[in-house]
């Protein structure tokens, strides 16, 4: 029993990382109706920046974290400017935008492979890992930090979107960008801000990932991005609570094979099976109908 609880805690920890990434997907999709395949790779970029600043350049950890997140944000905004904006201006069909997003993702992955090599990089703990025992259940401090930070981030994000003026603008643009423009909202700037927030969340997710796995490689983004994307779709793409719920759900599904003690390859089968079933019966996802929350 305690083993199951431990596994579920690990699942929730992974789930909170997926949820943070899924939020990035869902926000970008909500506002420009584009599945940003490059989003997973922003996390990879952030991880490599952390590695560069903290391990190679030996900067203090806090400075490294801030710089890494900043650079990720710059890359995210740059991607939007260079690749996605020209397409949006031409009102290209979805397929064109999707192919462009895939191309951006491939560029980032292969660029970092050229720069850092394709082998995975190992590094020591960022903060000292300790285990807290409650009865038979043991929780590592990193799990706790990850879960708490991501929940706080989600709450702050929800407040930001509901309460601030910029959040209101984002909701307006996602509802109807032409009408929003007529109301005097700067659509391009709002979309840029969405990308900034999305990549900022990716940066936080990257820190969590960096602390948990202690190993990075240039292609980590594609898998992580895929799972997070499934989370976003299962929860209902475009919906913020949906992304959070989907993320935790995916995290728990990922540890299901460990609980049932079967081959861990089954995790992927469960995952994509769930995705296909949900898409068949409720294509908009669990929280799909919740248009009011759409961003």
């Amino acid at each position: 029993m305690s083993e199951i609880v431990n596994q579920i805690i690990i699942g929730i920890q992974m789930g909170s990382i997926y949820a943070l990434v899924a939020l990035g997907y869902t926000m970008v999709y909500g506002i420009i109706k584009l599945i940003n395949f490059a989003h997973g790779d922003f996390i990879m970029v952030a991880c490599f920046m952390l590695y560069t600043f903290i391990i190679i350049l030996k900067l203090p950890a806090i400075l490294g974290l801030i710089l890494a997140i900043l650079i990720t944000i710059i890359i995210g905004v740059l991607t939007e400017r260079v690749a996605y904006r020209p397409l949006r201006k031409k009102k290209s069909p979805t397929i064109t935008a999707l192919i462009t997003a895939i191309a951006v993702s491939l560029i980032l992955e292969n660029l970092f492979q050229l720069l850092f090599g394709s082998d995975s990089k190992m590094y020591p703990d960022l903060i000292k890992q300790t285990t807290i025992n409650i009865g038979k259940i043991s929780v590592s401090n990193i799990s706790l930090i990850t879960i708490i930070v991501s929940i706080v981030t989600m709450i702050l994000l929800t407040l930001f979107i509901k309460k601030t003026k910029v959040g209101k603008a984002m909701r307006a643009v996602s509802e109807n960008s032409d009408a929003a423009q007529l109301m005097g909202i700067n659509v391009d700037r709002t979309i840029s801000i969405t990308f900034i927030i999305g990549t900022f969340l990716a940066g936080i997710a990257a820190i969590m990932y960096y602390m948990k796995y202690l190993k990075i490689e240039p292609f980590l983004g594609s898998n992580l991005g895929l799972y997070a994307f499934v989370a976003a779709v299962v929860g209902g793409i475009g919906s913020i609570p949906g992304a959070c719920v989907g993320g935790f759900l995916i995290g728990i599904i990922k540890v299901l094979p460990n609980i049932m003690s079967i081959n861990s390859s089954y995790a992927d089968i469960f995952l994509f099976g769930l995705l296909i079933i949900i898409l068949i019966f409720k294509p908009t996802g669990i929280f799909g109908k919740n248009i009011g929350e759409k961003v």
Binding site: A83, L87, T96, I99, A103, V104, L106, I107, L111, L114
Partner: peptide, 11 residues
């Protein structure tokens, strides 16, 4: 990398 850049330019 070259393929992807070409792809974006074409798109």
């Amino acid at each position: 990398i070259v393929y992807s850049v070409i792809l974006i330019i074409i798109m």
